[in-house]
Design a protein around this nucleic acid. Structure first.
Lengths: 335, 335
DNA sequence: CTGAAAGCGCTAACAC
DNA sequence: GTGTTAGCGCTTTCAG
């Protein structure tokens, strides 16, 4: 790599002159500036990022820690984060916690040594279950800002980006009721997560405050490693009267639809299904799945904005929580 | 952040003593080592990574550039790369080229300034179409090692990790022929990519060297932004006699299966389908899609291994190309 | 055993 | 206008 020193030597000027020239300092004569820039370009000079960062105590790098990159939601959020960060001149270092608390701790420790200016993260399932988040608060106490998105914790006081989980499920449930559905079931394989609990509560509340809804609430919870297909087979076998399904994670809606069609349910005449999915699954089914659609790109973008704001305005104002609205997208699996 | 200097001051020793003590130098007395380590632990000292990297001219960071993180193949490759890199003590900085040559150039430029020790990348579609890869060779010429995976180029001489694309499609085609299929069509929405061409050639070769196969080869190419569904609808409408489908990208196999079922094809009795997908799509269909399965985790892992090897053995041996074998996984959509 | 000093590449206050 | 110097945090000779 070409350094300032090499440029300086070739031009018979000092290193600081070169540095200033490259920054268009008006201390330097136009003539010199030109000569310096010409040579720099010729030799393909690029300032060493490490040196600049070290000098400035600023890396322009964001650490992103996500639980599972194979989950389409997180992949899309990462996509948005990367895009927005790039727009602001930031790089991202990505770590995957694999839903484990240990890896999460490691990643935070490893990067909070000057490698990144701040973090954007979504909490690992294991961490949420144990509700032990000291490792995250430690980092915050070291004055490294963190923005949490999607999976958050009340015990962490920091900027957050979430969706209206409760309300989204509430509205979806109300919609099915308005269709005249009498036996609405909720399917969840994210029962342990903060967002899962909120969505489930939204569903329960919508049922319980509807006077003429008579059936018991029915929540099918599926453990993370378990087979969604098996649980749904069982559900249909045991509950013949189901006429509405709300699936609050991003795959079980599709699976439920596919199973229902196989069983010759008439969707959406006799059975409505609403998933919590992204457009990416639409091409896999006919009819198209109606969904609660979260604006994942906005979630990622907003997270970056919040973080960069913290990085620029060092003033420690109170934590901000941004709620990104969801949409109920009616397609072919609702009336 | 706590620095060596602060430790030194508190202990009334010099900075170099502290540094050596933390590295268990035998120049330092056991007693001092212990005192230093105790304080370091107490104050939660972490060596500043930037300073270490600058000093050592080694960042222990790998730049990863992928075309599209929403593509499950690349997400999974990234997952494997991250995992393997972490195992070796490396971080990864992720950039998404979004299939554009411009973003690819930017990312390479931005990171080849000391930020990373080397790159792992898969070439953007735009770059492959234009076949203009100077920007990649530039980096290699600056002695920054690059490992290419999946989408590679003959014009770049560097370590590569690929799969046996030609052979995989060849074998799949032969399998369908062995089932007695008479009208086998190939569906591709990656026609412009190196891997797409190779897979198509494998299919064509398998047909043409089978003496008793009478039909014309039929290749349906779908542009990236176009609707896979529409093309497949059209295919079924225009070619009633199709009895075998090979889909060489990771979604159109599922779409074809779903459409075929909707049209009441008897799969696999009268129609076989083989996709080029990952296990993640299996739960979406019944019967389960038979696939050519690429060992994506191996691809990522091998890429990291090759790169780290280059980084450690600075000796410039000839470029290595690793071919990761694929498997033909027969499931419910083949006889 | 411990410390002083140089240097990685860069910036910026302060001379001249 | 240009150069000198100090320093970001660390490692590593080389002296003591």
């Amino acid at each position: 790599m070409v350094t300032l020193k090499q440029l300086a030597e070739q031009l018979n000027v000092s290193v600081s002159t070169v540095s200033k020239a490259l920054h268009d300092s008006d201390e330097i004569s136009p003539d010199t500036i030109e000569r310096v820039k010409a040579l720099a370009k010729f030799l393909n000079y690029k300032p060493n990022k490490l040196a600049v960062s070290l000098k400035n105590s600023k890396t322009n790098t964001i650490g992103v820690i996500i639980p599972n990159i194979l989950n389409h939601f997180f992949a899309k959020a990462l996509f948005a984060i990367e895009q927005e960060a790039t727009k602001h001149g930031y790089n991202i270092i990505t770590c995957v916690s694999n839903e484990t608390r240990e890896k999460e701790i490691n990643s935070l420790q490893l990067l909070s040594n000057g490698s990144v200016d701040g973090f954007i993260m979504s909490i690992a399932e294991e961490t949420q279950i144990a509700n032990s988040i000291d490792h995250i608060n430690d980092i915050i106490n070291q004055n490294v800002p963190i923005v949490l998105f999607d999976r958050v914790s009340d015990k962490i006081s920091t900027d957050k980006v979430i969706i209206d989980d409760f309300d989204a499920a509430y509205q979806a449930t109300k919609y099915l009721i308005s269709e005249g559905r009498k036996h609405i079931v909720l399917i969840s394989n994210i029962d342990e997560l903060s967002v899962g609990k909120l969505r489930t509560n939204g569903y329960l509340e919508a049922l319980s405050n509807t006077n003429d809804y008579k059936s018991e609430a029915l929540v099918v919870t599926i453990k993370r490693q378990a087979s969604i297909e098996d649980h749904i087979d069982k559900l249909f076998a045991e509950h013949k009267s189901i006429d509405g399904i709300i699936a609050i994670d991003n795959t079980s809606g599709v699976v439920a639809l596919q199973k229902a069609l196989k069983l010759n349910y008439n969707v959406p005449e006799n059975l409505s299904i609403i998933g919590f999915s992204d457009e990416n699954v639409l091409q896999f089914t006919d009819p198209k799945l109606s969904t609660i659609s979260q604006h994942t790109l906005d979630i990622g973008k907003t997270s970056v904005e919040l973080l960069i704001n913290r990085l620029i305005n060092k003033t420690s104002t109170a934590p901000i929580t941004k709620v990104i609205k969801t949409n109920l997208q009616l397609r072919g699996t609702t009336k």
